[in-house]
Write a protein that binds this DNA or RNA. Structure first.
Length: 285
DNA sequence: ACTTACTCCTGCACGC
DNA sequence: TGCGTGCAGGAGTAAG
């Protein structure tokens, strides 16, 4: 499940292997992979050809490849199971290969978008003055963005009538956090996922943001989390952070702080993992 | 205006 | 063994 650290690992791989190269041709093998490109697959392919790729950028879980001198960018979201792979042209097609992009140079690699569950996809969009694809203007800056505004986030939390994990997953408040890193940051902060945000104090928000950044940076340092082997970097390699998870996926295992068995609750069509002792439920639930 | 629920999709781990 | 069921869940959109 690619979240911010995993997407950043992919972005770095693209920066190394794809930036500066010119698109020769592209091939869309599954229309759903370009569903956010409203003009359709043929238009997507046609408009890519001949453009040179600039430095890959990222906000939260979105990443994009600017197309030099065009005012446009290829926007990518990996969804649940999307992979961007740099492969030799003669490597066998992956079972779930959705899009192939070939380059006009002598480097013997092509870019492939592979996606089992097809929640992800690529699309082409105009970029705004700050280089952001226009369709992701509603996505908040992420906690590793130097321009992320901690105070504005704190005030937004207090304004909202919501609970803390909902807020962490709300990409218009803070981006890049998904189910895994939300549970990890909450465990480190000793916060229950259902705690209302209304009464959050500034120190509490500051601590939570600190833990969010810490856990993301730690994951980034070891190549991200590959919980179910669906996430890999552009070379097809897994990250190692799954071994360092303190909360996610640890139902029944001892809390690493207090040894109480970790609990799992069905929550918003997914799961929340937490320590029932360290992360007390709010009084009114 | 704001919050919540639904929906898309495939493969795998289950239990009977 | 084979089949049905549940689960993984990001984010746009519809509904409340």
């Amino acid at each position: 499940m690619p979240e911010l650290p995993e997407v950043e690992v992919v972005r770095r791989g693209l920066e190394r292997w794809v930036a500066g190269r010119t698109v020769a041709d592209a091939e869309v093998l599954h229309p759903r992979a370009v569903r956010r490109h409203l003009a359709g697959a043929d238009d997507f392919v046609h408009r890519l050809k001949g453009h040179r790729i600039g430095t890959p950028a990222r906000r939260g879980k979105y990443l994009w490849l600017p197309l030099a001198d065009s005012g446009q960018a290829i926007l990518a979201h990996l969804g649940m199971s999307g992979q961007l792979l740099v492969q030799p042209p003669d490597a066998a097609d992956e079972k779930h290969l959705r899009i192939r992009i070939r380059f006009a140079d002598d480097v013997r690699t092509e870019l492939r978008f592979v996606d089992q569950r097809t929640f992800g996809g690529l699309s082409l969009h105009d970029t705004t003055d700050d280089g952001l694809p226009d369709v992701i203007g509603h996505i908040a800056r992420d906690p590793l963005d130097p321009l992320f505004d901690d105070e504005a986030f704190h005030q937004a939390l207090r304004r909202k009538r919501t609970t803390i994990k909902r807020a962490l997953l709300d990409q218009s408040l803070i981006s890049g956090v998904g189910n895994i890193y939300a549970d990890e940051a909450l465990w480190r902060s000793r916060l229950h996922y259902d705690r209302p945000t209304t009464g959050f104090t500034r120190p509490r928000t500051t601590e939570l943001l600190g833990h969010t950044r810490d856990v993301m940076n730690a994951a980034l340092a070891v190549g991200g989390t590959s919980f179910d082997s669906l996430y890999v970097n552009v070379n097809g390699e897994s990250g190692y952070f799954d071994r360092s998870l303190d909360a996610y996926g640890r139902e029944g295992e001892p809390c690493k702080r207090c040894t109480t068995p970790m609990a799992r609750r069905a929550w918003m069509n997914r799961s929340s993992y937490f320590c029932p002792k360290c992360q007390r439920a709010p009084r009114i639930s």
